[in-house]
Amino acid sequence: MLEIKDLHAKIGEMTILKGLNLSVKPGEIHAIMGPNGSGKSTLSKIVSGHPDYQVTQGTIEYEINRKKINILEMDPEERACEGIFMAFQYPVEIPGVSNATFLRAAFNQICKHQGTEEMDPLDFDKLLTEKMNLVNIPELFKDRAVNVDFSGGEKKRNEILQMAVLNPRVAFLDETDSGLDIDALRIVADGINKLRNKQNAVVLITHYQRLLNYIVPDFVHILMKGRIVKSGDKYLAQEVEQRGYDWLISKN
């Protein structure tokens, strides 16, 4: 459902992606690993439509109602409405806007886009409670300002909560595991596992194999210098964990 072909992109004058290819089908879990600066975060930002990045070559085709559409033409909010989601590596704090208000606004936009009625506040509150239980977030986080004074782990869980509420078709999770202790990691991984199904797909961007003990990927890709240099199954992640990335460089 998502087909990235020969993607080249830069930020300012710096070229980061140099011909990246990736194909994601419903029901799949992909893991993208790679050293710092290889372009992992750039990829998720481009997929979600961050304005700072400029795509110089290539396409990202996304299947909407059996039609393939190049999402590079779409605004970030349109992409989100069509079911593309990114969990931020560094979730942004939004003072003065409560989590519940924010999530309801987002949820209702998607309803509107799909041509269904907006959910009334009480029903949404019920839905939110349900999703909060799923990712183990206390209900008092409803009224707290989005991510403000949240701990690192709470911010990451809040990203998964948003994913649970918005129910995307493709989710890019950008280093959702970084900065989490082992208990928080388990909660986040549990949440993601509960949210996966045959219709949706998850792309995990991670530095560590650790997360993949909890969420078992169907494919593992190694991203280096802006291109995927090797793809394999979960054992590739274990190999990288033991040997590092150097052996892949020398091969190239």
């Binding site: 979600s48 439509g49 961050h50 304005p51 605004d75 970030p76 909010e77 992409r79 989100a80 409405c81 989601f85 990114m86 931020f88 979730p91 942004v92 939004i94 924010f102 606004a105 987002a106 936009q109 998607i110 886009h113 948003q162 918005l166």
Partner: peptide, 9 residues
Amino acid sequence: FYLESRAIP
């Protein structure tokens, strides 16, 4: 961008 990425115009 954070809000836009969550479908908010």
